[in-house]
Design a protein around this nucleic acid. Sequence first.
DNA 1: CTGTTAGCGCCTTCAC
DNA 2: GTGAAGGCGCTAACAG
Lengths: 332, 332
Amino acid sequence: MARATVQDVAKTAGVSVGTVSRVLNKSPAVSESSKEKVTAAIRQLNYRPLASARDLRRDRTMRILALAKNLNSPIISEAFRGVGDAAASSGYVSLIAPTAGDPEREQQLVDMLRNGSVDGLIMFSPTMPDEDVDEMAEQLSVVQVCEIADSEAAFGVSIDDRQAAFDITTHLIETGGRRLAMIGNRAARSGRLREEGFRQAAAEAGISPDQTLFVEGEFDFHTGRRLTRKLLKAAPLPDAVFCGSDTVAAGCVREITDAGLRVPDDIAVAGFDDSVQAEMCVPELTTIRQPAYDMGRLAFEELLARMTVPGVHRRGRTFLPHELVIRDSTKN
Amino acid sequence: MARATVQDVAKTAGVSVGTVSRVLNKSPAVSESSKEKVTAAIRQLNYRPLASARDLRRDRTMRILALAKNLNSPIISEAFRGVGDAAASSGYVSLIAPTAGDPEREQQLVDMLRNGSVDGLIMFSPTMPDEDVDEMAEQLSVVQVCEIADSEAAFGVSIDDRQAAFDITTHLIETGGRRLAMIGNRAARSGRLREEGFRQAAAEAGISPDQTLFVEGEFDFHTGRRLTRKLLKAAPLPDAVFCGSDTVAAGCVREITDAGLRVPDDIAVAGFDDSVQAEMCVPELTTIRQPAYDMGRLAFEELLARMTVPGVHRRGRTFLPHELVIRDSTKN
DNA sequence: CTGTTAGCGCCTTCAC
DNA sequence: GTGAAGGCGCTAACAG
């Protein structure tokens, strides 16, 4: 059987389409008896308003889309939970799609905003260059979370990555670290900020740059292992490693342990994110807690403002406080 | 500036809307010169066809939606990668949304199929009862992956969970396990099937049911630890534990190790999924590999058939082969 | 309170 | 190869 329309409902209920529409949209100007008839007809015909027709007419979809390189990052999934809850309480449906770091797929997804498939976009880890993100932000309802492009028009929600890296590196130094190493990721803006924080902390502690090691790559377990093997070839060995993510830190700890060295006694290791990985690791990881859920909530609120209030907003960045979580992978 | 429409493009290009539409849809019946003019106008006006108008007219969206309890399950994110690749090569955009196990939110998302916001639905971990899934499947384009409802109308793609559990339990027995334990999850159909396989393997090996232990809960790290503490209170202790997921197994190993016992010498532990957790664990986990990516691809192909050829549907499940991966958490 | 009607932007026959 | 026109299903403005 073909899908029912307002027309069908109107006919079955013995009223006009206008009345049906009013019932559908909870207009108060409907008599109780009409409402009942319409409701009954709707149920009888199993009617649902067609989204595309409604969207076309209303010029909005009440849907938003979030984009991320991949979905299984604990921070992203937690932040997206915040987005989802905030969105739901404003009547929006939130969807997410992975870009896999593929510019073409990212473009296709961004087009969903341009062509009105969704009302707003949240970007977690853009693949496109900063300028492109900025240009989008000028004209469209887009908010960045975690990763924020480095420019005048920058806007979005994140922690202060530089400061967080500074804090945890300082902790590494205060607990005896002298030959510092970092496993970072220059491909991401947050990665570059964390590197800055790392270097600044070293400098302020009077540790000369040539006493520090830096290696970089993707933030996954195997890369963490591989990069740590590089670090372990250094002489003298580092005595403290700051990793850009807990997962990388887990790989780092594993490689150090497999090499017969002890964490933190021989080499201290710090992570980042305070994901469940930090607790799964042995020893458990000292790390930086990101308030991911709240970042997501806030990001949606900002997006909502952009979607509903026409004109270009430039609220700048919102920094949420991070927290140093000290566990057993560093000395104390 | 307001958004451009086909009308605007037609006017700017000096042609009719029909011609613009033909260019947009790559109709061959357009002269080269018209095409160029239209293309130029489109670029000049930065025009994009409005999705809702096009969807309304065409009665389809070329979008599909996947639903899962949460996004950070390695199996789900890998399977969704498969869905996404298959979808992309058929011109579909695939989105995903977490239900958080909330029936209301799940319903809202399912409504996106009912109201035509998307053309098809892939369900990873339904929260609704099996009957409801079946009823949906009768009338709508829905395919299940991993978790498949237990009924006549069952359809979808998964591994043979019962057989996989049987295989890995048998491995546990063959390597000396006699006092068997399982950490399962009866809330999920796959969990119940794995329990069956576990019990069947024990029975066939002549191990009486009262020599086996069974505890259950959610499949996360902390639950794994908590349930393992329960197991460790048994006397005599189990000598082999089959866990329903790698993450749970990681928690199990951790708790055993913290109790001063050795894995696998004192207690062997097996996981499920062959996710990265299996390799992060020390010792690395013996587990069952699920061909998640291929499951996703196949699921999309089946969904595509359902979306394009309404009516005739092959009912039934598609089982993909699993693989026993032996590592160090079990004896050999 | 209710019915009628005019589009929203697009695609697609149908003439030419 | 091209233009004109109808209509997809819905909402909202306007009469009554």
